[in-house]
Amino acid sequence: DDVELRDGDWRVELKDADEEILRAVEEAIKNGASEQELRELAERLIR
């Protein structure tokens, strides 16, 4: 699993992620995405 989400800690570690993925995830976090939404976003972007 390349995506690590810690309970109560919104730092997201994406291994080997490019800047576009990181920006998309950071934007989702700023917009108040839930953990499930972040997982789905990350899975779509990593593929």
Rank of each mutant, 00 (worst) to 15 (best):
R23M: 08
L45G: 01
L41I: 05
L22Y: 08
V12E: 15
D9K: 06
R44V: 04
A17H: 07
V25T: 01
A28H: 03
A42W: 15
E37H: 04
V12F: 04
R47A: 04
A33W: 14
V12D: 11
G8N: 13
E20C: 07
L38I: 13
A42P: 00
L14H: 02
E35W: 13
D9R: 04
S34D: 06
G32C: 01
R47L: 14
S34Y: 01
A33L: 14
L22Q: 06
E27T: 06
E26R: 14
S34H: 02
I29V: 10
D16A: 08
L41F: 04
L5H: 14
L14S: 01
E37M: 08
K30I: 07
I29D: 04
D7S: 05
E40D: 08
D16Y: 15
I21L: 07
K15H: 06
E43F: 14
D18N: 06
R6C: 09
G8Y: 14
L5P: 10
E13F: 15
R39N: 03
R47N: 15
E40P: 00
N31Q: 10
K30N: 07
E19Y: 12
L38A: 14
S34Q: 03
D7G: 10
L38G: 04
A28P: 00
G8C: 07
L22D: 00
D9L: 04
G8K: 13
A42V: 15
E43D: 08
I46A: 05
I46W: 11
R6S: 14
I21P: 00
A42G: 02
D16V: 07
W10D: 02
E37W: 05
I46P: 01
K30M: 12
D18Y: 08
A24S: 06
L38M: 04
R23Q: 07
R11W: 14
R47H: 12
R6M: 13
A28F: 06
R39K: 11
L22W: 15
L38Y: 03
R23I: 05
K30P: 00
E35F: 08
A42T: 10
Q36A: 13
K15V: 11
R39D: 01
K15P: 02
R44A: 08
D7T: 10
E26D: 05
E19V: 13
D18P: 15
I21T: 09
D18I: 06
K15G: 04
E37G: 02
V25L: 12
N31T: 06
E20Y: 15
L45D: 01
N31Y: 07
W10H: 02
E4H: 14
G8H: 09
A17I: 08
A24K: 12
R23V: 04
E19R: 09
L41T: 00
E13S: 14
N31S: 10
E37Q: 09
N31W: 11
S34M: 02
S34E: 02
R47Q: 15
D1T: 05
A28G: 02
L22S: 03
E4P: 08
Q36S: 09
A24R: 10
E20A: 14
E4F: 04
E13D: 09
E40H: 07
R44N: 06
I21R: 01
A28L: 06
W10L: 04
L41R: 00
N31A: 06
N31V: 02
D2P: 11
R44S: 08
R11Y: 12
E20V: 10
D1C: 06
D18K: 10
L45E: 01
E35M: 10
E37A: 03
E26H: 05
E4C: 05
Q36V: 09
S34F: 01
L5R: 07
E37T: 06
A42Y: 15
R11M: 13
D18V: 09
G8S: 09
D7Y: 08
N31I: 05
D18R: 08
D9Q: 08
A33C: 03
R11T: 04
W10R: 02
G32T: 00
E13M: 15
I46L: 15
S34R: 02
W10T: 02
V12N: 04
R39E: 03
L14Y: 08
A42M: 15
R47W: 08
D9F: 07
E37N: 03
R39G: 01
A17K: 05
G8L: 12
D1F: 14
D16H: 12
V3E: 10
R6P: 05
D18L: 08
K30Y: 10
I21M: 06
L41S: 00
A33F: 12
E4S: 10
N31M: 12
D2H: 12
G8W: 15
G8T: 13
R6G: 14
L5G: 12
E13I: 15
E43N: 13
R44D: 04
E40Y: 10
L38S: 02
Q36C: 04
E35P: 06
N31F: 07
L22T: 05
L14Q: 01
W10M: 03
D2T: 11
R6K: 08
D1V: 10
L38R: 02
I29Q: 11
R47M: 15
R23S: 06
A42N: 01
E27I: 10
R39P: 00
A24N: 03
W10N: 02
L41N: 00
A28V: 01
E20S: 13
E19T: 07
I29K: 10
D7K: 07
R39Y: 05
I29N: 04
D7Q: 07
I21G: 01
G32W: 02
V25E: 00
L22V: 12
I46V: 09
E13H: 15
D18S: 06
V25G: 00
A28Y: 06
E37L: 03
K30H: 07
E19K: 07
V3S: 11
R23D: 02
L14W: 05
E19G: 08
D16L: 11
V3P: 04
E13C: 15
I29C: 04
E40T: 12
E40C: 06
A24V: 13
R23G: 02
V3G: 13
I21N: 01
R23T: 03
E35N: 06
A17L: 09
E19D: 11
E4K: 11
R39A: 05
E13A: 14
E4M: 10
D7V: 08
N31R: 12
L5Y: 09
Q36P: 03
Q36W: 14
L5D: 10
A24Q: 14
V25P: 00
L5Q: 10
G32K: 03
W10E: 02
K30V: 07
E40L: 13
E27A: 07
I46R: 13
L5I: 15
E26W: 15
A24Y: 08
G8M: 14
E26N: 05
D9M: 05
D1H: 13
V12Y: 09
E20H: 13
E35G: 04
L14D: 02
V12P: 05
I21Q: 02
L14P: 01
